[in-house]
């Protein structure tokens, strides 16, 4: 093998990634170091239980309840914990509000930091080299890749998640959403709108 194993022991595993993870899982399971049922549980958690629906509930509540919104923007952790949205990769949350004057967008240029308890596992594009490299230098061009064009006069503030603080964007409440219930509002909140690469959906036309 061409690799120096002492520096890169991973080269000892099969190169195909699916076989590689299978080999590692088998070795660790045989030694009693991991429990395959725990792996199933972790996957199920992030596939089915924890995802952007959590963040959407928080945003819908903030749109409906000004007192909740004020507390959320001032000190998010206690209120999020109360809602059960505390946990791994979301221990220190800051919520940043979009306004007509300022649009917020979140990236992690060094790795892929993302608020798991509120948004789940980050999508492929968030972890891509293109997003990590470009979001800080040309956020408006990146927004265009998402089909988003901001009004003239809106500043962009990009948050590069370089520490253990995780950011959630509070998008602007869509026009025409007056009178919608919290549940109906949550339907308008997209994952991308909470990362700042998208805008919430418009409410369905009245019949």
């Amino acid at each position: 093998m061409p690799h120096d194993h002492s520096d890169h022991p991973h080269a000892l595993l099969p190169p195909d990634p699916a076989l590689r993870v299978k080999a590692l899982e088998t070795i660790l399971t045989r030694k009693g170091l991991i429990d395959p049922a725990a792996l199933d549980e972790i996957i199920d958690t992030y596939q089915n239980k924890i995802g952007p629906q959590n963040g959407a509930r928080v945003v819908a509540r903030a749109w409906s309840d000004p007192a909740f919104k004020a507390v959320l923007l001032a000190d998010a952790d206690p209120v999020l914990a109360e809602l059960g949205y505390y946990g791994r990769q979301g221990e220190h949350m800051v919520v940043v509000e979009n306004t007509p004057e300022q649009h917020n967008m979140v990236v992690c240029t060094l790795c892929s930091c993302y608020p798991w308890p509120l948004l789940g596992i980050p999508p492929g594009w968030y972890k891509s080299d293109a997003y990590r490299a470009r979001a800080v230098r040309e956020p408006r061009a990146v927004l265009l890749d998402f089909g988003v064009i901001l009004p003239e006069g809106t500043r962009v503030r990009v948050w590069d998640s370089t520490a253990e603080v995780r950011y959630l964007v509070l998008p602007m409440r869509p026009e025409g959403s007056e009178g919608l219930s919290e549940d109906q509002l949550a339907e308008l909140v997209t994952r991308d709108s909470m990362v700042g690469t998208g805008l919430p959906k418009s409410p369905p036309e009245a019949p």
Partner: peptide, 18 residues
């Protein structure tokens, strides 16, 4: 899907478990 391939979820889970 949250995991584009099945092994992606497995890789994440093995890493967390370790």
């Amino acid at each position: 899907p949250v995991f584009a391939a099945e092994w992606h979820g497995r890789a994440l889970a093995v890493t967390l478990a370790c």
